[in-house]
Design a protein around this nucleic acid. Structure first.
Lengths: 144, 144
DNA sequence: TTTACCTGTAACAATAACTATTACATGTAA
DNA sequence: TTACATGTAATAGTTATTGTTACAGGTAAA
């Protein structure tokens, strides 16, 4: 099991919009950099737009960031592209047997533990902004 | 996307083996409490056995814990049932375009961030033992 | 107003993982 | 030998993911 690459692609899209901010960042341009189909990009652009991360308009080529780089965290992207639902990173088996002491309590015991683990992961995502990502890409680019 | 319920079921199995330690915990007995097919349980028992968490023998009914409760963490179970591979909680799109400054660096930029998030989640799993789970189930059982 | 090109989106297919199930080989002990 | 357990291969249904074609609808320049 892995979390959908929509998340990584979403980050890629936003980062490239920033890098190409003087130019026109169309779905085809993005698709070429990501190496996927433009429709995949447009679907993701729709999600990013819906979450207020980018501005994009029918008929007009190019997407722009709708917020400051430092105001967009990886968690914002993660939520926007809908890869993991709240409290559902871990799935729990349905309807264990209520006649068993373990069966009737295990869900309530496990759930807060799973939630805590998920929140710890998400906390890391909240601590990283797109500005961090853009700067790191720029640094790697200049070094090499 | 959700992490397979094998993890939750694995915890259920180990917890029930402990609760039923005076009796015989067969795959059928476990399957009844979990509410699934005994073959599903036997596959999981195979994984838990392979990781040294339980003892179970062909032809002989019943599984036993192979370690102290306090010596088994949720992380041990998580690894045993193989729900998430190392460094693969988040998937990253393959082969972005090398002619693009973002395309050729995004993987190296994102990867350590994803790894850090995954490790934070796993750290929580390492901090909880089966003893904690068993005690919590017992407490809930006594309250109600 | 026609043309060219963009975004938005529905429909569909291939793939992979998950879960449940049947069937049966193999091991153990009464 | 019988009864019953674990171990495991094969298979099916379901769902999510990713990619693709097709086309509706918006915009702007010729």
């Amino acid at each position: 099991m892995s979390i959908s690459s929509r998340f990584a692609v979403g980050i890629h899209i936003l980062t490239l919009i920033e890098f190409n901010k003087e130019g026109v960042t169309s779905s085809e341009f993005l698709a070429s950099s990501v190496n996927t189909n433009p429709v995949v990009i447009r679907k993701l652009m729709g999600m990013l737009k819906k979450s207020g991360l980018i501005e994009v308009h029918p008929g007009i080529a190019g997407a722009k960031l709708a917020k400051e780089l430092s105001d967009i965290t990886l968690f914002d992207v993660y939520k926007a592209v809908n890869v993991v639902q709240e409290n559902e990173l871990f799935s729990i088996h349905e309807s264990p047997h209520p006649d068993c002491p373990v069966g009737r309590n295990i869900h309530n015991t496990i759930e807060p533990l799973f939630t805590a683990a998920q929140l710890a992961m998400e906390k890391v995502l909240r601590s990283v902004t797109l500005e961090d990502v853009v700067k790191d890409v720029a640094t790697k680019e200049n070094i090499s």
